[in-house]
Design a protein around this nucleic acid. Structure first.
Length: 219
DNA sequence: GAGACGATTTTCT
DNA sequence: GAAAATCGTCTCG
């Protein structure tokens, strides 16, 4: 039983195929809600259910790949289902999943999750958190809680210590319903001239572990 | 090699 | 609600 009352049955989750990640970025971003991220880190397994994600398309300036390939964003141009991590604001790592065809430059930012496995380890990696809800309700917090950083850059989610597991369709529908459906809004933290208004953010409406609830856009 | 900036978090008012 | 903290990456010279 999780803190939110919904009984998450991890045994029903399975590894997706490569095709799961090669679909359109926004499709993947929404599909990842209710999915599970699991990291078999050296200090133990940590994992949780994704409750918030954002899509980034190479065609819009909010995306790191908008201006082409660089040393930093190279992983975004790799095969789908691989990991793109980057460092920002002097302190924080962000965890992204590459989508669409290889060479596309598209990805999904995982912004929040509900801790399920390895919660003790998450507490140790998030010493400033006061409540369990604060362990991973933001992209920087999430990466810290899951022990993700430069080390995971370019990893394959289908063949590494870091993986995504997806629930059966019917079970996923129950999850979505349990949390009041999916909300679509504009993305968080983008400058005004960086396609800030595009509705590429998705989260579980009533889930308490979502990072930010007030932002313009539909929903 | 210098300067500007950021897909954030935390603390203080 | 405002602002500091903090440093890798990119751009330009």
């Amino acid at each position: 039983m999780t803190l939110t009352g919904f009984k998450l049955d991890l045994s029903r989750y399975k590894s997706p195929s490569r095709r799961y990640f090669s679909r359109p970025t926004l499709t993947v971003a929404e599909a990842l809600l209710g999915s599970y991220v699991r990291h078999e880190s050296p200090d133990g397994i940590v994992g949780g259910m994704i409750v918030e994600a954002e899509g980034y398309l190479h065609t819009e300036p909010g995306c790191h790949a908008f201006n082409g390939e660089t040393n930093r964003n190279r992983a975004m141009f790799g095969p789908p289902g691989h990991v793109y991590t980057y460092f920002t604001y002097g302190n924080h790592w962000m965890f992204n999943i590459v989508t669409e065809k290889e060479g596309c430059g598209c990805a999904v930012l995982i912004r929040a999750l509900e801790p399920v496995e390895g919660i003790d380890q998450m507490w140790s990696r998030r010493p400033k958190a006061r409540r369990e809800i604060d362990l991973a309700n933001g992209p920087g917090k999430l990466a810290a809680a899951l022990n993700l950083s430069r080390d995971q850059y370019g990893w394959d989610l289908l063949d590494s210590k870091l993986s995504v597991l997806v629930p059966p369709a019917g079970y996923r529908k129950r999850i979505i319903k349990a949390y009041g459906g999916v909300v679509t809004t504009s993305r968080i933290g983008l400058g005004e001239n960086k396609a800030a208004g595009l509705p590429y953010r998705y989260y579980l409406k009533e889930h308490p572990y979502v990072s930010v609830r007030i932002k313009r856009g539909k929903g």
